[in-house]
Amino acid sequence: MLEGLMGIAGKFYKAFIEGERWKLYLSGLGITLEMTVVALIFGMVLGVVVAVIRTAHDQQRPGRRNILLSILNALCKLYTTIIRGTPMMVQILIWGFVIFASSRDKVMVGIIGLGINSGAYAAEIVRGGLMSVDVGQSEAGRSLGLNYLDTMRFIVIPQAFKNILPSLGNEFITLFKDTSLVNTIGAAELTYQAMRIGGRNYDYMPPLIGSALIYLAIVIIFTWLQGKLERRLRQSDRR
C-alpha cells in the first residue's frame, strides 16, 4: 500500500519536479491562456459584427432592402453554417496543414482557427441577446433621433451583453478547453507539453492527469470570477 503510493509519488516527481519540468507546464499554460484570450477577443469582435449584420438585415423595413446588407448577410450565414457544421478538430488541422502549412508560428495559426470558430458560436449567442432586448428600447433610441448604430452601441448591445453573459462564459470555457486541440498542429500549449513529457518518461499518466487538474482549476477560478462580474452588472437593476 505504502509502496504503491510511494511509486505514484515518484512518477509524479519525475513528471513535474525533475529537471525543472514544471516550468514546461507553466510555459504551456501561458500559451494556452494567451491563445484563449486573444481568440476570445477575436471571436467576440467577429461575433458582434456578424450578429449586428444579421439583425440589421432581419430588421430592415420592407420596401427598403439594402443590397450590400443582403450580400453581407449571405456571407455571414455561409460562415456560421460552415464553421458550426464541421468539427473543430478538422478545422484546426486544415488551418495548420493546408492553409498555413508553411507558417512556423503555430500559436498564431491556432489563434486564428480558434477565433474564427468561436466567432460563429458567439454570433448566434449575441444575436439571441440582441433579440432579447425589448423592442421599445430601440424604438425609444430611434425616436430620439439616434441612428441605428448608435442605438445598437449605447442602448441595445449593453443590455444584450448582460443577458448573454452566462452563455458567453460557457463559450469562454469551451474555447479554453478547445485550445488543447491545437497541440495537433504543434503549438506548444499545455497539452502539447504534457504529451512531450509523457513521451520522454514513457509514462503518460502523471502529466495528463496533472494537466487535466490544471484545466479544471482554471475553469473553477473563471466560473467564480464570472459570478462576480454578473453581480456587478446587475447593479442597475437594484431598487
Partner: peptide, 14 residues
C-alpha cells in the same frame, strides 16, 4: 419630434 411611450422605455443601463 419627441415621443413618449406607454411603457416609458427609459434605458435601464444608464
Amino acid at each position: 419630434m419627441g415621443m413618449v411611450f406607454q411603457h416609458f422605455n427609459l434605458f435601464p443601463n444608464m
